[in-house]
Amino acid sequence: GLEHMADEEKLPPGWEKRMSRSSGRVYYFNHITNASQWERPSG
């Protein structure tokens, strides 16, 4: 619920959580730099 939404908002600017269609794993994508990574971004 609300706790999940608050957790999402802690991601650094530009980052969003996405799911890989090929593997079904969650990864993180930065739409500003077009960077993507499996680890949760910090800072």
Rank of each mutant, 00 (worst) to 15 (best):
W15N: 00
A6D: 13
E8W: 05
E8G: 09
G43Y: 10
E16G: 03
A6E: 13
N30S: 05
H4C: 13
G24F: 04
Y27A: 00
R25L: 08
N30C: 01
L11S: 01
S36Q: 08
L11P: 15
H31Y: 14
R40P: 08
R18N: 02
P41A: 02
E39W: 09
N34S: 09
P41S: 01
E9V: 07
Q37G: 01
E39I: 07
W38K: 05
L11I: 04
H31P: 06
P12D: 02
L11N: 01
P41F: 02
D7M: 10
H31T: 15
A6K: 11
R40V: 06
N34G: 15
S42F: 09
N30V: 02
I32A: 06
H31I: 14
K10L: 13
G1Y: 11
R40C: 01
S42G: 11
G43H: 11
E8R: 07
V26L: 07
H4I: 12
Y27E: 02
S36N: 05
R40E: 04
I32G: 05
R18P: 00
M5P: 13
T33M: 04
D7V: 09
G1N: 11
P12K: 01
E16Q: 06
H31F: 14
I32Y: 12
T33H: 04
S42I: 11
Q37I: 04
S36D: 02
S23W: 07
W15Q: 00
E9I: 07
L11R: 01
G24C: 03
S42W: 09
Y27C: 03
K17F: 04
A35V: 15
V26K: 03
I32W: 08
S23F: 08
P13Y: 13
S36Y: 11
K10P: 15
V26M: 06
A35I: 15
H4Y: 11
N34L: 12
A35F: 10
Y27P: 00
A35N: 07
P13D: 08
R40I: 07
I32E: 08
E16F: 03
H4F: 11
F29V: 05
S36I: 15
K17P: 04
L11D: 10
S36M: 15
E8I: 09
E39L: 08
F29T: 03
G1A: 12
Y28D: 00
E9D: 10
Y28V: 00
M19R: 14
S42Y: 09
N34K: 15
A6L: 11
K17Y: 04
W38L: 07
R21N: 15
G14S: 03
F29M: 02
F29R: 04
S23R: 04
S36E: 06
S23K: 07
K17D: 01
W15R: 02
R25Q: 07
E9H: 08
V26G: 02
S23G: 07
T33L: 06
S23T: 14
W38T: 06
K17A: 07
K10G: 11
K10R: 11
Q37A: 04
E16D: 03
V26S: 05
V26T: 08
L2R: 08
L2S: 11
Q37C: 05
S23P: 06
P13W: 12
W15F: 02
N34M: 12
R21W: 15
D7I: 10
A35S: 10
K10I: 12
H31L: 13
F29S: 01
S42K: 13
M5K: 09
M19V: 15
N34C: 15
S23N: 12
T33W: 04
E9T: 08
P12M: 02
D7C: 14
M19G: 04
R18G: 02
Y28T: 01
P13N: 08
S36T: 14
L11V: 08
W15E: 00
W38N: 04
R40N: 06
E39H: 14
G1Q: 12
G1T: 14
E9S: 08
S22T: 15
I32F: 12
M19H: 14
R18V: 06
T33Y: 06
Q37M: 06
M19D: 05
E9A: 09
K17L: 08
G1W: 12
R25I: 05
E3A: 13
P13M: 08
G14L: 02
R25W: 04
S42P: 07
E8F: 06
E3Q: 13
A6Y: 12
L11E: 15
R21Q: 15
P41V: 01
S42R: 11
E16R: 04
E8T: 10
S23E: 12
W15I: 00
E8K: 09
P12Y: 01
L2Q: 12
N34T: 06
G1I: 12
H31N: 09
W38I: 06
G14Y: 07
D7F: 10
R18W: 03
A6G: 10
P13G: 05
V26W: 13
Q37K: 03
A6Q: 11
S22C: 11
G14H: 08
T33A: 04
P13H: 09
N30G: 01
P12Q: 02
M19Y: 15
G43W: 15
G24H: 08
N34F: 12
R18D: 01
S36L: 13
L11Q: 04
L11F: 02
F29H: 08
G24L: 06
G14T: 01
P41R: 01
N30E: 01
N34Q: 14
S22Y: 14
D7P: 10
R18F: 05
E9Y: 09
V26Q: 05
G14N: 06
S22V: 14
Y28Q: 00
L11H: 01
S42V: 10
G14R: 02
S36A: 13
S23A: 07
N30A: 01
I32L: 12
A6I: 13
W15H: 01
E39M: 09
G43L: 11
E8A: 10
L2I: 13
P13E: 08
V26P: 09
P41L: 01
E16N: 03
Y27T: 02
S22L: 14
H4K: 06
